[in-house]
Amino acid sequence: MSGKVDTRVRLAGIDLKNPVLTASGTFGYGTEFQDFMDLTQIGGFVGKSLTRAPRWGNPPPRIAETPSGMLNAISIENIGVEAFLKERLPALPEDVVVIASCFGTDPEDYADLAAELSESPRIAGIEINASCPHVKSGGIEFGQDPNLLGALVRRVREASSKPFLVKLSPNVSRIGDMAKVCEDSGADGISLINTVQAMDVDVQTRRPVLSNILGGLSGPAIRPIALRMVWQASQAVNIPICGSGGILTAEDAVKFMLCGATAVQVGTANYTNPMAAAEIAVGIADYAAEHGFPRVADLVGALDLSSRSA
């Protein structure tokens, strides 16, 4: 049925065969999923956030399950940009769209990484992680201060020859303002949301469940918050939005598209079902077919607001 539907979307200048990407930090470096699926079934994937040098994350416990979600405080543990470019990227099939996520301590650091990643012909675009909620410095500071964010985005714009998205933190009071700063400073698109800062406590031991005390909440628990933020951001900017937060099914993904997301990212669902992203891509096309949309791109922003007021 979905055979007739045109599933292609164009996100910030990157052509995707369907609107489903996988979220940074939930899809490894791509190769880990090849046991379970053909990576070309998804629109593309965003790799684990990369830093200049390899780095370790936090001591355990790093994760904990919470109602309809999970907390994590991995911190940006990664193999470093060098090893990614040299060892991991060549191991991926040629026709997989790769978006590299990068994380820095200051705008120069981000710009250097973006410049280096831009040079690889295998990388279609870059995602600037301006929102990791549990790294001591960098990341979230940029995502929470509009002036810092603007300076960062301008610097990355100068350094990068590839399209780039800025991944925003939900831990702000006015998401529309942050989105607008990105647009005005030259970003090609925005991704949201990253995890919601949160914590949990073990009453038996009376200790926080995570070694880092605070972590980031992901999964279905944050989906309504994510939808709200995607909606608000889409009202504030014209650049494309990549929506994420608790997507488990095709219907969840469609909701994000209706609220204005051009593409979506599947995160925590990859852990519960290693084929989730591929199945969601098929399900979105089925939905479009069933509801008379010739192209899945027609779902973007197609929210029916008649008899509703904001």
């Binding site: 994350g57 543990e77 925590t268």
Partner: peptide, 23 residues
């Protein structure tokens, strides 16, 4: 044993510390 989310090496949640440092 450790708490796990994915089981196949992508969430990095199950890291255990090594005697030589690192996880």
């Amino acid at each position: 044993e450790n708490t796990m989310a994915c089981g196949f090496g992508v969430c990095l949640g199950c890291a255990v510390p090594l005697s030589e440092g690192g996880f």
